[in-house]
Design a protein around this nucleic acid. Sequence first.
DNA 1: CTGCATCCCGTAGCCACTACGGGATCAAGC
DNA 2: GCTTGATCCCGTAGTGGCTACGGGATGCAG
Lengths: 137, 137
Amino acid sequence: MAKGARGLSIGQIAAAAGINLETVRYYERIGLMPPPARTEGGHRAYDPAHVRRLAFIRQARALGFGIEDIRTLLALAAPGHRSCGEVRDVAAAHLAEVRAKLARLARLERILSDTVERCSGAPTPACPVLDMLDAPM
Amino acid sequence: MAKGARGLSIGQIAAAAGINLETVRYYERIGLMPPPARTEGGHRAYDPAHVRRLAFIRQARALGFGIEDIRTLLALAAPGHRSCGEVRDVAAAHLAEVRAKLARLARLERILSDTVERCSGAPTPACPVLDMLDAPM
DNA sequence: CTGCATCCCGTAGCCACTACGGGATCAAGC
DNA sequence: GCTTGATCCCGTAGTGGCTACGGGATGCAG
């Protein structure tokens, strides 16, 4: 064996991908990361393909994709299977969810902001926040 | 006993407040709702004060307040303890969190929307979505 | 070869519910 | 009074996506 047979430790790929070490083990448990080779002593030994996959997962998580979506995306990203249409469908569905959450949060922001502002403003006798919570939407 | 000693069933207050029945029992388990009186057979018998409290909780949840915040708000809303300043602090802190989430979601929306749009547009050879997931932020 | 960093694994906790299941109780109709 | 069907009882487990903990085994530098 000349050299390259060693592989990266879990701590190393975790650091490389900017992911918590325990999260990497979690991804393996749920089948999102394939089980890597092991050293004689039982420690995980990863290769660069694992790092790329982990970076892909991190990126997808950062964009808010759920684990199941990522599972699908990883399958669709496999070489020879690059069906951009299906990928777009997954991304578009996720985008729709993001937009729904965005709209809901914007509504909340408006209500809370209005109410809190009224709180610091005019010297009303009652508490605007509590009033809002007592009144039905 | 003339009449009013009966009380509402859990199903009735749940429906009245628009909350899942099992959620009401959950709120009682975690101490957010006080334990109501019981019938001889052990069924919960609520009074109107419970309904008001539950409506308050529902409103606060709809505005995105967490359970611990609601616990605080309920204490601050107790008669004789109406300190609007503290209430405003809780609401303002929550508003800040909402704004942070909003900003993050807006970023995601922009990225996803740009990428998905590029997908349906020009006849590029590769998949823009997968490209984005492969590339670091 | 010693010492310390790292890694092993399983389990439990987080939040705010939701679901399930087998039995008890309630209210209304006859 | 009795039957029937709706409702309610309680405890437990599952959801998503991790994160934390603990006690022991390994890896590697000096």
